[in-house]
Structure formats: C-alpha cells, structure tokens
Amino acid sequence: MGPRRGRALRRRLSATIIAGAFLLPNFLGFVIFTFGPVVFSLAASFTNWNLMKTVPLQWVGLDNFLKLMQSPDFHRYFVNTAYLMLGLPVAIAGSLLLAVILSQPLRGVVVYRTLFYLPSFTSGVALFILWKALYNPEFGPINQVLETLFDWAGLTSVKAPTWLTSTQNPLALAVEYAGFSPDQFGLGARDAIIIMGIWTAVGGGNLLLYLAGISNIPQDLYEAAEMDGAGACSKFRHVTWPQLAPTTFFIVVMSFIGGLQGGFEQARVMTLGGPAGTTTTLSYYIYVKAFEEFQIGYASAIAWILFIIIFAVTLLNWRFGSRYVNY
C-alpha cells in the first residue's frame, strides 16, 4: 500500500466519521423513537403483553392476528374506517375543480387561495368542538338552515337529520353486523364527520398540489389543442386531466393512507366513538385497546394490520405509479 492510497483511505475514513457526527443527533433520535419502536411493536404484536402486569408475559405467535381476523368488532370498525373514507373522492374532486378555476387569470386568486387553506391549517380540537356545536340538532345553525329550507319548500313533514347522535347512513348499513337494514337509511354521525372532513380538506394541501401541477403543464399543449378547435371541456379532458395524472395519483395514495389512519381525534372529541360504535375507527380502537384497556400486544397487532395495508398500497404506488408518470 503506497502512501497516497493510505492518505486517501484516511481521508475517506475521516469524512465518514464527520458525516456520522452530522447524522448522529438525528439518527439517534430516529433509532430510539421511530425505528426501534417499529421493531418493538412488531415483536409486541406476537405477545399477550398487558401493561397491568396481572397477566404473565407470553409469546402467543399469530394469536392476536387470528383473533382480530375473526373479531366482529374489528370488522365493524374496519367498515367504519372505510366508510369515513368515502368522502375522500369528493374532497379530491373539489380540490381539482377549485384548482382549475383558481389557475385562471382572475382577480383575488391569492386571497381566495389563502381563505380556502384556512380550515385545513387550523384543523384540530378547536374546530371539532366548533362542528359539534354546528351539528346540534336543535340550535345548531346547520339544522336551523335546513329547517328553514324545508319550511320554505313546504316539506313540513321532513325532519332534519340528527347528525352526531344518529346511527343512520345513506347506504343503510346495519349498525352491528356486516349487512343492510332499511331503517338505517338517513344521515348520521359518520356522514357528519365526512362532511366536516370535506370542508376541511377541499382547500388544503391537495389544492396547492393541483395548482402546482397545473402551472407545470406546458402551455404549447393547450395551444396545440386550440389549433384542433378544442373547447374548454375537451381541453380539460385531453390536456389537463392526463397531465395531472401523476399529481392525482399521488394525492389519492396519500389521502388513502391518511384516511386509513384517521378518525381518532374526531371520535375522541365529538362522539367518543358512538353512537353504538359507529364512529369508532381503527385508530380509535387502537387507542382504546392500548391506552384504556392496556392490551398492548393486541393493540400492536391492529396497528400492524393497518401498517401492512398502507405498505401494500405504497408498493402498488411504486409498481403502477411510474406508468402514470410517464404518460
């Protein structure tokens, strides 16, 4: 080994050490609070671990997962979670519509954009408490408006929905079992949460992403379309929509991931998971299992099922996403 190679090696080594020093604070925290816990919770999901220590710790293998798969509670809460995600396509379509409008040369675009972003920026406990009051069946402004409208239209027999206290839903899903029950037809707590979610999300980050996407579309594509005599609708269909496909794809995937994990704060603040468990989502169920019943093992298993679903979706994103990107 010549002196030059030795020096180069030493330099590389010292560069690595310096890089390590830069990385260390973050990496340490990352290992302790993120990576470690991920591994740890995977291990915990194969045990009967209970924080109360009345039960001896045991390795139970796939027991927790098998129990979950057979548990009707888990199925129902899964359906609840999926149901609450029905608002996502509406919210995404709304964002797209707004983005198309806002990307025109109009006056006050910045003001509107700022305004629309407000709900998602301030979203949190305070807004959930606000919506609880808005949904009050008697004095809440939503029902006051609805009742005035009904009276005005002469529909005196129609009653306004009772929102957060009702188990009803437009799909007439039964409360307890996976099936349908006609008397459940109507609007209820889950729909109230969906509507609130749409209100929050329409003007949020998705709108900004669409705006960025639209501004990146090459102008000559539109000019070419105009040469062919395309109208506004046809330009949207043949230029804007396909050009925005990667953005849409990204938004759909992120919303899906967010939706699967969602519903905890709403349930805790607005409904305590009720009525009759209809607003209990998987994340709220995990909270109840882990922090109220202290069945850490079981709760970890639920969390991991969530993770597996999310992981699968992300993999699909990588597999098929590129196809859209290279459109």
Partner: peptide
C-alpha cells in the same frame, strides 16, 4: 410510511 399509532405504543 409507518402509521403514528405503531410507534406511539
């Protein structure tokens, strides 16, 4: 990608 609840516990 890991959901928050996984690391929370």
């Amino acid at each position: 990608m890991v959901p928050g609840v996984v690391t929370m516990i």
